[in-house]
Structure formats: structure tokens, C-alpha cells
Design a protein around this nucleic acid. Sequence first.
DNA 1: AGCATATAGTTGATTAGTCAACTTTGTATT
DNA 2: AATACAAAGTTGACTAATCAACTATATGCT
Lengths: 144, 144
Amino acid sequence: MGQEPMNMMMLNSKLYRNTQGYLDKALKKYDLSSGSFRYLFIMEENEGLSQSRISELIGHDKAMSARTITRLTELGYVVRIEDQLDSRAYKLYLTDKARLILPEIREEIKKLTGLITADLTEEEKEITLSSLVKILNKARELNT
Amino acid sequence: MGQEPMNMMMLNSKLYRNTQGYLDKALKKYDLSSGSFRYLFIMEENEGLSQSRISELIGHDKAMSARTITRLTELGYVVRIEDQLDSRAYKLYLTDKARLILPEIREEIKKLTGLITADLTEEEKEITLSSLVKILNKARELNT
DNA sequence: AGCATATAGTTGATTAGTCAACTTTGTATT
DNA sequence: AATACAAAGTTGACTAATCAACTATATGCT
């Protein structure tokens, strides 16, 4: 097997696509995807978020969030309630159907994270995680 | 600014999209993108590769490679020569136009890599890089 | 009050990428 | 030599994501 010289960004893009594909398969039985499940996690911890706020938190643009949330409501995982104080906005809430499956999904994520980091020591995991946070902060600066 | 708890995969996906967007802008003046420039790098070091071989090396499926390479030939960066020994296959070669811009592109990549890793020590960079390689190898196993 | 500007959300166009079906050609087996 | 199977490349359908344009409502300023 040949190799191209690896730098941080090539690694990142390969890793992204590999894990995304796996997650999509694992979440298919809930009709969720690697992109959509995180909305549920965030709504679980924050009742009544608006779409624009959740877009910020997830790091998607508002168009993506609108489409994802529409899909999640169609699937019965999320309800949109009109905001009494701002008639442009929705407040987002999880349904019981969503709360029921969230623990299973969390397990799937934990399982995948465990699988791909199996060859790392605890120290390597910590350093990698904190380095990625630093890198991400720099990367975000680029796009502003 | 609120934060969701970060795990490896969420970081990775955010990082992927942030760096991709930046690179796309940086490479736009060559009509290249974050996905296509790597084909040029690989062809530079490997004369006469087939599309299926380059797909393996890059980690894209052959459909993606076919489309990308078609575009690169339209742009005049790559030529497809029919393989004398296997009439199904092409052999791929860089043009002079491509060789001319490759050093500049390499600089762009180096610049971006430098920017996003600016807050890391040398040790952190090394550990992060080698950990990501380990993670990627595990992730690849998942999809086979 | 009236106007300008900002914000919430939606929609359409475009891009990167994957998967599956297909055509053509090569390889292996009998 | 015939048949079967594998491999190279293309095409079409689909998903995730972004950007830009738009509508409707809020907010701030004079």
C-alpha cells in the first residue's frame, strides 16, 4: 500500500470521511445521520433554543440547521414552538421519542470513539484532544 | 459563547469544514479546491498512475476521482494517456502548467498548516500527528 | 412616528463526496 | 476457445454542507 506524505489537514479530511460513513450506518436505524444527531444532544441540554443559536453552537450555517431541523420534526424527534417574544423565531424542544433513543445514540458514539482511539495511551488522547481544540480555535479565526 | 462537550469526532468534523473552506478560497485563483489539489501532489511524485490507483492513494472512490480528473484535464493541469497494456485504463500525467503552480500551492498548504498549529509545541504537533495516523488506521478498518 | 438596520428563518443554486448500476476490457479456469 | 469473474472508468441519484438572495419581523435612532 502506497502512502502520500501525511500532514494534519490530509489526515483530518480522511478521518472525517471515514468516521462519518461509519456513523451514518450506525445511526441509520434511527433515520439519523452523522450531521443530525448532534442537534438532539444540544437540545437535550438546552431547552427552547432558537435555530440561529443552535447553528452557532453546532457550527453549521442557518440554512443547514433549518433543513436538518425540518427533517428532525418530520421524524418526530423535535417540535418547533413559536416564540411568544419574537414571532420570527422558534423555540426547539425534544420529544419523548428523541429522549428515548438518546442513550442508545450516546452509546454508539462512545463505542466509535473507543474503537478509533484504541491504540492511543491516555496521555496521547489528552494531548491530541487539547491540541485539536487549539487547532480548531485557530482555524475558526481564519474564517472571520 | 456556549460550548458543547467536545469529543474527537465533533472536533474533527468542525475542523474539517473550517480548513476546507479556507483552502477553497486560497486555491480559487488556480480553479482548484481543497479536494482537487491533492491529485496534483500525488501525480507529481508518481508518473503515469491510473485513476483507480490514485483513488486508493487519496481515499476517494473512483467516481469522485473520475470527475475530479476530468475537471483537472479541462483546466489543463493533467493529461490522460491511454494505457498501451490495458485499454480500459488511463495513465495520468501532470502538465507544465501544473508543475508551474505546484510550488505556490505547496506554500499555501504550508502556510495554512503553520497558522492552525501555531499554538502547539513541537512535541504536541508530533504526538497529535502520530495519534491521528493511529486513529485513521482504526477508522479505516471500520469501513472494510 | 418613521426610517434604517439587524436578525430569524426559508429557499435555490452549487460543490464535494458516496453508492450503485452499467460498459468495456482483462484474466483465469475449465 | 468459452465462460465466468474481476477490474477501470463513467454516469446518475443521493446526502451534507455552504453561500446568496429573499421575506418577515425587531430594534434603534432621529
